[in-house]
Design a protein around this nucleic acid. Structure first.
Lengths: 207, 207, 207, 207
DNA sequence: GGGTAATCGAGACGGTACGTCTTGTCTTAGG
DNA sequence: CCTAAGACAAGACGTACCGTCTCGATTACCC
């Protein structure tokens, strides 16, 4: 789906695409999504703000969601690596606090307000979102958990995909259902909880 | 926000509102949202399918999201009570499996595809969704956890709001980010994980 | 068409129609037509301004044109009589100057802006307008012309229906085509012209 | 007001306007006005029949009246010239009979039923109607009358604007007030009347 | 270093939906 | 039974965008 928008890694000297227009479009889309929200975000509006013809957008992207996706990608950059100090709890704390900070930042509103909603109704967006944005980060986390399990810091019988869900789930739950705002300060407490569990002691010991 | 749609319990003799139209609208909206998705859901389309004038929708609801909200509310009914057998893990399993089943059911697609996305961009929807749909269920869960804590089945120092996030987070994470489909069969495993935590017993046992 | 709106001559004590509502409606309609023009005149608007239910209008009149018709009728009153001093030119001058004054008056805008236009597209309005408003006045003029012809002040071979057209035509021509505003001061000149004709002398006499 | 609808004489290479759409719109509007009348004439209806988006109408015209105006203009064409045989009465007869024929023709119903009524309530329409349709014809008539006056066929003291009113007034009077249908056969009689006047020859003069 | 082909800004086009307004009918209370 | 009030199905209003299309005017490649 995202094929035409040649990624920066490919040979840009072979296409006549205007990098200036591309940047103006992504920036305009991100700004507008923050200002007016995703439903009111409009291809015409993006073109107007970017000083670009509508066709230039339609030529390279298939929907406003696809534009935002590329915008977020540019924004999120490549930092998918996970710290590895040897202490899994500490590493989770540092990485996930940063993540929580990003999710709560207004810079990432197009992600929350636009992409995740769009993904619920557009399989192409859903796939790109998962593949391009989420999976690299999930994989990085998972790799770190594998190491932690080898190090004996995580029980051997724990399915690490489940572990990722347990760690990141609460973050997105608060982000998307608005029960409580996402707050990096809460992250360490939640990590402790996930590590220790709710149960008072090993297995059903004394009353 | 949901004030005008007087619930059937209030004095309908002073209310000239047509119950027939109301039902036709809610049903049409839910159907259409499932069929064409939330972005393509249209007030005009709802009116057409319901055999109703557009004004009749605008008179009582402020947006397509508000219509869906009432539709989901009718659908979800009043069953917010939580089982209480004395075994918290068993109770969570039975309740949360049911919840996972609903979330995965296509009947609830308007909730996933429509309401949660809409809530990201419309504070009124967000508030009603939280107040009318989520909070009653969260409260019910929380009350059960309070009991469990009293019974010594949950550590005393656990913040129960955190506990709710830890339990329900993974469900919504999978639902909305599409990393893995929501599956009731996975629920017991996730509950065990949340109860026990990731960490191996500190040299045998905890406190 | 105008049957239900019982004329003031019939027994109003036998119907339960509210005279208060009737007057309020007529007045509101005339005012609004002057204020916003005929196309923007609305049954709802009339009802609102008159403090009356819409049904009360629909019960007694078939269209906004019919309301105006009755309003104009009330306004124009019964004075259809033509002066008869023995001098036809003088009588025409006095009568037609008054007519020109009325037509130019803003009180009669609903007639110009509403009824005459409406009559072009609604045969019922056209008929009532002709029968109730115009014909009585045309007849009065014609009767006076008959007398003048008997008195030798008008050629015997003149068709008096043509004469009426010749006299009143220029008035309505200016009124409705807006070539020049209707001005009572111009009336005597036009009457002289109609009486004398354009031709320099009897029949082609000297150069 | 008629500025945007660039006439075919101007530089169409800079004008991206679709001539096909323009023609379809004018034709549809004229047809519909004849079929359903002016009040029931609708921009949506015109667009539907013309197979055109509504915006394409709103882009170039300000109201349904403006569309009809252009349609009538296309229809009436450029034939504003007046015959000049030397006999003013004969020339008036030939020209005004033709005019009466047009006014009575159903082709011109949009003019009678639509434009003239619209002009009563819309100053823009009134101005364009006068400027684009009426004045050229009035001027042509007037010029012919000037010649006739020079030729001694019209009294020197006659104001020729008055003369035009006297000649055309009766036509429009019958057309718009529906006292009698407009009939080209009546034209010569009315012209004779206007030329000779109503008054008997001063002391019995003519034949 | 001109030819040429794709891209650019611009914006008209046929459409669909918006949210508002009015239509004419119907129902409800109150006098 | 008439009234004021106002809900109802219907549909037009004028506006905003959709996604496609056609214009010249760059622009940057290739020969």
């Amino acid at each position: 789906m995202n094929a035409p928008p040649t990624p920066p890694t490919s040979d840009r000297s072979l296409d006549r695409r205007s990098e200036k227009a591309r940047k103006a479009i992504l920036e305009a889309a991100m700004e507008l999504c923050r200002e007016v929200g995703y439903p009111a975000l409009t291809i015409e509006g993006i073109a107007r703000r970017a000083g670009v013809g509508k066709q230039t957008i339609y030529r390279w992207w298939s929907s406003k969601g696809a534009v935002l996706l590329e915008g977020i990608n540019d924004l999120a950059g490549v930092s998918t690596d996970f710290p590895s100090t040897g202490d899994i709890a500490a590493d989770l704390r540092s990485q996930m606090s940063a993540t929580a900070g990003l999710l709560a930042s207004e810079l990432f509103e197009p992600y929350t307000r636009g992409l995740i909603p769009a993904a619920q109704n557009d399989p192409d967006i859903a796939e790109s979102l998962l593949e391009d944005i989420l999976q690299p980060r999930i994989r990085a986390c998972r790799d770190r958990l594998v190491q932690a399990q080898k190090d004996g810091q995580i029980r051997d019988d724990v399915d690490l995909a489940d572990a990722v869900d347990l760690l990141y789930g609460p973050l997105y739950y608060r982000l998307l259902l608005h029960t409580r705002p996402v707050d990096p300060a809460d992250v360490p407490r939640m990590i402790d909880l996930a590590m220790q569990g709710l149960r008072p002691w090993p297995h059903g010991a004394p009353t």
